[in-house]
Write a protein that binds this DNA or RNA. Structure first.
Lengths: 266, 266
DNA sequence: CCTTGACCCTCCCTCGGGGGGAGGGTTTTT
DNA sequence: AAAAACCCTCCCCCCGAGGGAGGGTCAAGG
């Protein structure tokens, strides 16, 4: 029995367009072509070939690959090593997609956390916990900070365990400022120019600063005033925790940035 | 600072071609175009935009989507629901790939099993185990068999637990043959026209038949002869187990088909 | 016999995300 | 002043189809 292309398309559930395409690619050549009108005629023996093509296509083989398989193989076990390769390829792709999925999930998680957070904007006294961190100390403008944060995250490779923060010495030299960017991590991490250490627990006075970083001086002022009014003794550097800053993608609205400043006291 | 396209390409790690393409798509428009020579000049403020594009591209967003995001969003949390959608999309794709991977693994497993198997071609006496099966009984030519096997596998949906076999009555009518195709399954499975039941354990004489199905009569003959010579009493139907038949893809070499014929005896 | 509608043909355009290269102009370095 | 390095536009290529134009062919019904 011979079928015209339309019927053959119905039988094989391939589109007429695809069938013509496969003909051009010599992937599925009609048994006969009418020399008068150019009509394609398909024998029923081609149905199984069409089935093979459909199956291989569903398995993500390209038409080119399918053609090679059909040319060189006549038995399942000759195909098996090609199939193994394809499986590997698919596994690789799954891995890549999973890693993207992971990143996206992380982002969504983070966003959720930040969403409805209310922040107290009064000075509080807190106990901080011990923290394993990696850090980079740098000199230069604050605007370089982002660069180092990137480095830290890269070095941490997913072992990050908290928000980034900076440490500033109590007696900072404003002409030649020095800062340390830190990232809490789960495990020890190594990297060029990266220091791993543990920050001890301690008592701090803390203040949430909402707004852009260039107005953060005011909040420092408040902390210092509070320290002086209450005759507290400062025992360590300032810690500036970036709770919500520029996003992953967009800088966002600086008026909504949230930072926490901590001053270590006795 | 202004950069020419080549330098900007180095900075952003995008290709010159891509940059020109992004310009055409109004995705990343140069800050200035020299009206004399048409050179594109990129401001450093475009670097972050380029970074966003790179990141989104790595997350599998299309350029079109990226353009929409850049047009309508200025803050991470406005993008978050788009990202959620993308995550869903990626999960869907992972699922699809995993299902393909599963099928391929199954195939590879099967092939491995068949690979170096040696078969005894002498009559043996065996005890068979109890078996849960689904089955379809049909009348008509043996060649329809494949169709029903397909149905069984479809109905089993991965719950298949062994090789397909046929059951033939001891007193088959050769003019109007009736056969039952069976597939062992792990759990009960339902489907239209499909029967689920348990085949009891039993004693059988068994013979491996190697070669195409149309010569299988010889092997039946041998079994019957053996039964008669040893005065055994047949107590159930013939069971014809298809150990290695036409492959998933290709019919393969019929001379290498392997079947086992079992005859239930007391 | 003619029309109508269902088929069929070839040829070209479109999608995405660029790469390769031709052909020609400009800038920078030697 | 020449050579090398850049830049431009324009066109074709990849893949696996789908859409549609423009034209030929076949079967059924009036």
């Amino acid at each position: 029995m011979e079928y015209r292309i339309g019927d053959f398309a119905l039988i094989t559930r391939l589109s007429v367009k695809s069938l013509r395409n496969y003909h051009d690619l010599e992937l599925l050549t009609p048994t006969r072509i009418d020399s008068e009108n150019g009509y394609r005629f398909y024998d029923e023996s081609l149905i199984s070939r069409a089935r093979i093509i459909t199956v291989l296509k569903a398995w993500n083989f390209s038409l080119q690959e399918i053609r090679e398989i059909l040319e060189s193989c006549s038995d399942d076990h000759e195909v098996i090593h090609i199939i193994k390769q394809k499986k590997q390829e698919i596994q690789t792709r799954i891995k890549a997609l999973k890693s993207i999925e992971g990143e996206l999930s992380l982002l969504i998680e983070n966003e959720k956390e930040n969403k409805d957070m209310k922040y107290k904007t009064e000075i509080e006294i807190k106990e901080t916990e011990e923290l394993n961190i990696i850090s980079i100390t740098y000199k230069g403008p604050f605007s370089d900070c982002g660069k180092y944060i990137g480095k830290l995250y890269k070095a941490a490779k997913g072992k990050a365990a908290g928000k980034v923060f900076s440490l500033y010495s109590e007696d900072v030299n404003h002409d030649d400022p020095e800062g340390t960017v830190c990232l809490p991590v789960k495990k020890e991490v190594e990297g060029p120019g990266i220091e791993y250490r543990t920050i001890p627990a301690g008592k701090v006075i803390s203040l949430i600063h909402i707004g852009p970083y260039d107005t953060i001086g005011n909040s420092y002022q408040k902390l210092v005033d509070y320290r002086n009014e209450n005759s507290l003794e400062q025992t360590g550097p300032y810690r500036e925790i970036y709770i919500k800053g520029p996003g992953f993608l967009f800088p966002g609205n600086p008026a909504k940035y949230v930072s926490e400043i901590q001053m270590y006291i006795k």
